[in-house]
Computed example of a mutant assay.
Amino acid sequence: MMDNIPYDPIATLGRAIGAARRRAGLTKTALARASGLSRLTVAQLEAGTVSDLGVRKVERVLRALGLALRVEPAGAEPPTGVARVRGAAERSPLGRLMIARASERRARALELVRATLGRLRRQGVSARVVGSLAKGGFHVGSDVDYLIENRAGLSESRIVTIIEAAMRGFPFDAIFAERADPRLLELIREEAERGASAVRAA
């Protein structure tokens, strides 16, 4: 009977990590580099066959995927999957409205991003889009994430001021490459490539 199947937290964690990695468009090798682990360890973790892995190593993998470890009471209902939530939302009037609002917000974000990148380029600043807008996961509550590759001699505060003026109140974050974790910078740059495609295609 299904009720007699023991709960395996390692296998559950591995499936969640594998699903998040695929949604992010990452290979196991890329995730391994970002988290400082071997590809074999990542593969074993996703398969639920890893023999022993410290909490700090698991936390590094989760952080690379934008996830966090959460403690819940035993027997708590597991969180609903993203795909299932979206499927249910598409069948309700409110859900369809929220999806439409997210599409409108994304279109507005792309319009502001093009203007912002233009202003930064005129100042000699090299910047690209990363985060949810680049990965295709933009929603109603998303902000825009910029990767600043070259400040062109401008201070960080000056660059933030330029972005604020161009974004007209739309929320954003600025990530300065020179201060980013080197292990994550490659992943951020891969996102930036997808972000450039999204801006061009819009």
Rank of each mutant, 00 (worst) to 15 (best):
R151W: 11
M98F: 01
R106H: 10
R101Q: 13
R119T: 15
R101Y: 14
R168L: 15
G169M: 12
A102V: 01
R151V: 13
F170S: 01
R91Y: 13
G95F: 04
F172H: 11
P171A: 08
R151T: 09
I148V: 10
G131A: 11
L147V: 08
R119F: 13
R91I: 13
E90V: 15
L97W: 00
F176M: 13
R96P: 00
G87N: 04
E104K: 06
R108M: 05
V130P: 01
A165N: 12
R168H: 15
D145A: 05
L94K: 08
A174Q: 10
A107P: 01
Q123E: 15
A89E: 11
F170W: 04
R158E: 07
V130L: 05
L120R: 05
D145H: 03
L120S: 01
L133R: 09
V85N: 07
G131D: 12
V160L: 10
L110E: 01
E156Y: 10
L117R: 04
V113M: 10
N150P: 04
R96I: 04
S126C: 05
R84C: 11
V125W: 09
E149P: 03
D173C: 08
E164P: 06
S155E: 05
A127H: 08
S103T: 07
E111G: 05
F176R: 02
G118Q: 08
F176T: 00
R96K: 12
V125H: 04
I148D: 01
G131P: 02
S157D: 03
G136Q: 05
R105M: 13
L120D: 02
G141P: 03
R108D: 13
A100G: 09
R91P: 01
L120Y: 10
R114M: 05
V113S: 10
A115I: 11
Y146F: 12
S142I: 02
R108A: 12
L133D: 01
L110S: 05
A177P: 02
T161H: 07
S92M: 12
R84S: 14
I163Y: 01
R96H: 00
E149G: 00
R105D: 02
G95I: 13
R108T: 12
I148G: 04
S92F: 00
G141S: 06
S103A: 11
I159A: 04
S142V: 08
I148H: 03
V140T: 13
S157E: 14
D143A: 05
A166Q: 03
R158C: 05
G124K: 11
R86N: 15
A165E: 12
G131S: 10
R128S: 04
L117I: 12
R86Q: 15
V144E: 06
R84V: 14
E156G: 11
A177F: 01
H139E: 14
A174G: 11
A88E: 15
A107F: 11
A115D: 14
E156P: 06
L94A: 13
G87K: 11
V129H: 00
A134G: 08
R96F: 09
E156N: 08
R122F: 09
A102Y: 07
R84N: 15
V113K: 00
I162H: 08
G118I: 08
Y146M: 04
V140H: 04
L117F: 12
